[in-house]
Write a protein that binds this DNA or RNA. Structure first.
Length: 153
DNA sequence: GCCAACGTTGGC
DNA sequence: GCCAACGTTGGC
């Protein structure tokens, strides 16, 4: 099993929204970055666990855990002209963008803040989230990093 | 294929 | 709101 981290903006859709969804599950639509898409397409498998991360908000950091319950399939929002994520270049016969379904697993009692993660940067090694200028919305987490982070909770 | 311009992300 | 960093676009 592999581990990942997925960013989300709580002002738009956060962990509380995920908890409130039917089956506590949501299609992760709207990813418009090739590297992130490739992680979904080539890496993410059913059962993989995911840190849920809140960005662009007062308390940025990891807020809980989810898991992949449906592997990559076409992101239908790319075909919807009314959608904010509409992409006219994505052909339904050859979809450019993909999504996975994520199910809520648990929420941390308190946010594991980015600044806390930074304080343990050495123990985390080369962690994509902490790299300068990191903008990936989906990124891999090694098992070692996963366990180190869980111990910080 | 290069690279400048532009748009977006995301922390602060 | 600012700004650094990065990805994408498009002219050549």
């Amino acid at each position: 099993m592999q581990h990942w981290l997925m960013k989300t903006e709580p002002g738009t859709f956060g962990i509380d929204d995920l908890m409130g969804r039917p089956k506590q599950t949501e299609p992760w639509y709207g990813i418009r970055n090739y590297t992130a898409r490739n992680f979904m397409r080539d890496g993410m498998k059913n059962g993989d666990q995911v840190f849920l991360y809140h960005s662009s908000c007062p308390e940025t950091g990891i807020v809980g855990i989810g898991k992949v319950v449906k592997e990559a399939y076409p992101d239908s929002s790319a075909f919807d002209p009314k959608s904010e994520w509409f992409d006219p270049k994505s052909d339904p016969a050859n979809p450019r963008w993909l999504m996975v379904d994520v199910k809520f697993v648990r929420k941390f009692k308190q946010v594991l803040l980015l600044q806390t993660l930074r304080a343990h940067a050495e123990a985390l090694g080369d962690f994509a989230l902490l790299r300068k200028g990191n903008r990936l919305s989906i990124l891999p987490v090694t098992t070692e990093q996963w366990n180190t982070i869980l111990a910080l909770e």
